[in-house]
């Protein structure tokens, strides 16, 4: 389970998330906006009787949101609240035996904030990201 990762894309970049952090992957229904919330909070959506706080990953990275059409979200639970992270697409869940490597390249500030390592799979490099930092959004990082 430790080595199982969910592979998705955010702003076209393939990323990996520890599968142990992920509750489920869903297609979101109607999203009710939250006025006055930080820009990366896209709104609230219902998942059965739970309410998800929908996080736009692209906004959290500081990019202009591109894929408004996508409704696919990774559901994460943090401190008793459920969050839906809107991603570009979900590729697969895979076991990667190699441990994460430190990142050898200089990343853009947005990526640098959420990335915690690099994974090699199928001759392709994947960024391992920390969903908690995605949820915190860019403001928190500035304050820290």
């Amino acid at each position: 389970m430790d080595k199982l990762y969910l592979i998705a894309t955010i702003a076209g970049q393939p990323v990996a998330i520890h599968a142990s952090l992920v509750e489920s992957v869903v297609d979101l229904g109607a999203v009710a906006p939250v006025p006055l919330a930080p820009p990366h909070v896209a709104g609230l959506a219902a998942l059965r009787s739970k309410v998800l706080t929908v996080i736009c990953c692209e906004c959290s990275l500081g990019f202009a949101p591109t894929g408004r059409g996508t409704r696919r979200a990774v559901v994460i639970q943090l401190d008793g609240h459920h969050y839906g992270l809107v991603v570009g697409s979900i590729e697969d869940a895979r076991v990667i035996d190699e441990p994460p490597q430190p990142i050898r390249a200089r990343l853009e500030p947005g990526w640098a904030r959420i990335a915690i390592g690099m994974l090699e799979y199928d001759g392709e490099a994947l960024l391992l990201i920390d969903p908690e930092r995605l949820i915190a959004g860019p403001d928190e990082a500035l304050a820290a």
């Binding site: 919330a37 609240h81 969050y83």
Partner: peptide
């Protein structure tokens, strides 16, 4: 209760 990101709006 809503998540901290939402409650943070203060309204």
């Amino acid at each position: 209760p809503a998540s901290p990101a939402v409650m943070g709006a203060g309204v």
